[in-house]
């Protein structure tokens, strides 16, 4: 089930730091993602997870450190660079244009055109994508402002699937989703992995992390605080790493893996 990759990482962060004024949001962070691998990044609020995501997607430039993509050191100086490399991102704040409709948002920045915009093909592709995610969206020609939080999140996820990315980054993708859609997204993450993509997922739910992740990277106050094999670590250990309390009483009971696997 868990495809352990044998190839090298498709994307690596090497000692990346980022300061916002006096706040050191990230300090010397390392991270590796291999093809066919799901890496979960966990950490408390403000641990720097979203900042990490924004560095990978070209929204922020790192202050120090380097990014290696496909074995080559790269500079990601803007979102367009990240797209060109094949890094797709679902942002925590979704980054949708509320005045545009679903189709327009999905294809924003990479519209299909045949001379002029090819609306019909874009609309077809949109339905196809949304159906893949079991999206409950009544119409793709209504402005995103009129969608519910979960529907918007689905749109943001669908958008990241366009354009054949090599690495896909999901910043709390299930935060606003219903039961069925959450299961669908987790299932999708597995399918993406099986298609050979590297997936970085951020989540606050231990259950989800343990359900789909191969590796769990813990961030604490902007620093690495351990990388665990998801199959070999207990929730308690992860939580201890997140809050940084060695003193946390170690629970001897280990929850059975596989209990919450079949939730599609």
């Amino acid at each position: 089930m868990t495809a352990v990759s044998t190839t090298g990482p498709v994307l690596s962060l090497r000692g990346v730091s980022k300061n916002f004024g006096a706040v050191a949001a990230l300090t010397g962070v390392h991270l590796d993602v291999a093809p066919r691998q799901v890496v979960a990044i966990v950490g408390d609020n403000g641990a720097g997870k979203s900042t990490l995501v924004k560095i990978l997607s070209g929204v922020h430039r790192p202050d120090t450190g380097s990014i290696v993509f496909g074995g080559r050191e790269v500079t990601i100086s803007g979102p367009a660079d990240a797209h060109a490399l094949g890094i797709a991102t679902v942002f925590q704040d979704l980054a949708l244009c509320e005045n545009l409709d679903v189709v327009e948002n999905l294809f924003l920045g990479r519209e299909l055109r045949r001379g002029r915009l090819d609306e019909v093909t874009m609309e077809l592709r949109s339905w196809e994508l949304l159906r893949q995610l079991s999206a409950k969206i009544p119409s793709v020609r209504i402005p995103v402002a009129s969608l519910s939080g979960g529907q918007r999140q689905t749109v943001a996820i669908a958008r990241s699937l366009l354009g054949d990315p090599a690495v896909i980054i999901l910043d709390e993708p299930t935060a606003a989703l219903g039961v069925a859609q959450t299961a669908e997204v987790l299932h999708l993450i597995e399918r993406l992995r099986d298609r050979g993509l590297g997936v970085i997922m951020i989540s606050h739910s231990m259950e989800e992390v343990r359900a789909v992740a191969d590796e769990v990277a813990v961030l604490r106050l902007g620093r690495n605080n351990g990388v665990f094999k998801a199959a070999e670590v207990s929730s308690q250990d992860i939580i201890a790493a997140i809050v940084g309390a060695d003193a946390l009483p170690h629970h001897p009971h280990r929850p059975h893996r596989g209990e919450n696997r079949g939730d599609e």
Binding site: A80, A95, C97, N99, E104, L108, L117
Partner: peptide, 25 residues
């Protein structure tokens, strides 16, 4: 209404940061 430029204009007016993250200059 029919070109990518126009789409970008509306996107920037609606949410400039989202437009930037979509790779629009």
């Amino acid at each position: 209404t029919r070109t990518g430029w126009g789409r970008s204009v509306f996107a920037v007016g609606g949410n400039a940061e989202a437009a930037r993250r979509a790779g629009i200059n």
